[in-house]
């Protein structure tokens, strides 16, 4: 963009000029004090007394509590395990985003990766001490909840969406009931059911870890919502596509797998991404059932009497982590729409 175009864009008309000036004025008022607070007057040393005496941000809170926020109540001397597990997660996710790696070996990589992550986190093999899932926390817990939640919810969502459009009345009724029931209640109530009600109904002598119960609640919720997004894609698809497939004599499975889903899912990408991003952030609701995900661990850190007043710094830190993940997700979905949607479907 040339300078002239920029000038025209900002001050071309009187109302654009007015808006631009207003924004510049707001920034001028807001930025310098913000800069002073966050950088110039900030304290980095983990000393609450010095922080309270200063007007700036107290990044010392992060210096002091970052391991608690990132890894929760995981045994301190074992923190390298969740650290490697989180990095593995990021590597796996980043690799999966590139279409060049979309082969069977990627599925194998995931299985291998998840095995390593599980062994790292849980231990009990290779001389690693056992760390029960109740002690997992922070970033790896958020990633586990989100990745497993989304990966397992998506196939269920596709099945539910197909079921809702099925011609078989029982299947359709079941899918509609499931979707409407789950969408009819807030996620918090599902999580409460999973954490409070389920243990009372389990047979004597069996407990299911809270992590698994919360994960199942998340999967059910995400599946019901994504199902409606997928159904949107299915309905947007030209009926001619299905009729053509029928005319060719394809079976229901072949028709759905090769003709309908590739096109419908592509249409549904924006709204599915929307669901994924909101599910990723919804994982923070597990704080209400006493799990130390990223946000829960931050709150645990803020409960320290010494550091109670520095919540702004803590929330900013966690918000930055959430932003990195959700922003990458939304950028990636834009890329998918632009570049993958243009190419013809390549069933493999």
């Amino acid at each position: 963009m040339t300078l002239k175009a920029l000038w025209h864009g900002l001050f071309g008309t009187w109302y654009n000029a007015f808006l631009s000036l207003a924004v510049i004025w707001l920034l001028a008022v807001w930025l310098p004090p913000m800069f002073h607070w966050a950088i110039l007057d900030a304290k980095i040393a983990p000393d609450p007394a010095a922080c309270r005496a200063s007007f700036g941000a107290c990044w010392g809170f992060i210096t002091e509590k970052h391991r608690l926020i990132l890894f929760g109540a995981y045994p301190f001397d074992q923190h390298w395990r969740p650290l490697i597990a989180s990095m593995l997660f990021v590597v796996l996710l980043a690799t999966s985003c590139n279409p060049r790696f979309w082969h069977t070996s990627l599925a194998l990589g995931w299985m291998l990766g998840l095995t390593v992550i599980f062994v790292l986190m849980h231990g009990g093999a290779l001389g690693l001490s056992v760390v029960e899932s109740a002690m997992w926390g922070g970033l790896p817990l958020t990633l586990i909840l989100a990745v497993f939640g989304l990966a397992l919810a998506f196939p269920i969502a596709v099945l539910l969406a197909l079921g809702r459009r099925s011609h078989l009345p029982i299947i359709r009724a079941l899918c509609v009931t499931f979707i409407e029931l789950v969408r009819g209640v807030p996620l918090i109530s599902l999580l409460f059911m999973a954490s409070v009600m389920v243990p009372l109904f389990l047979p004597e002598g069996i407990t299911v870890a809270k992590l698994v119960r919360a994960e199942i609640g998340l999967i059910i919720f995400a599946a019901a919502y994504s199902a409606e997004s997928v159904r949107g894609g299915l309905q947007a698809l030209n009926r001619g596509q299905e009729e053509a497939a029928d005319a060719l004599g394809l079976s229901y499975f072949h028709k759905t797998w090769y003709i309908v889903l590739p096109q419908a899912l592509r249409i549904a990408i924006p709204s599915i991404t929307n669901n994924f991003i909101s599910t990723f952030k919804d994982t923070s609701l597990v704080v209400i059932i006493g799990m130390f995900d990223l946000l829960g661990a931050l709150k645990a850190g803020l409960n320290d009497a010494q550091w109670r007043s520095f919540y702004a710094e803590g929330y900013l830190f966690v918000a930055a982590i959430y932003f990195v993940f959700t922003f990458s997700m939304s950028k990636y979905s834009q890329y998918l729409e632009r570049d993958i949607a243009r190419t013809a479907p390549k069933p493999s």
Binding site: R67, L68, G72, A73, Y74, A300, N303
Partner: peptide, 8 residues
């Protein structure tokens, strides 16, 4: 409370 090292 879990302290800075995650110890209860």
């Amino acid at each position: 409370i879990a302290d800075s090292q995650g110890k209860w």
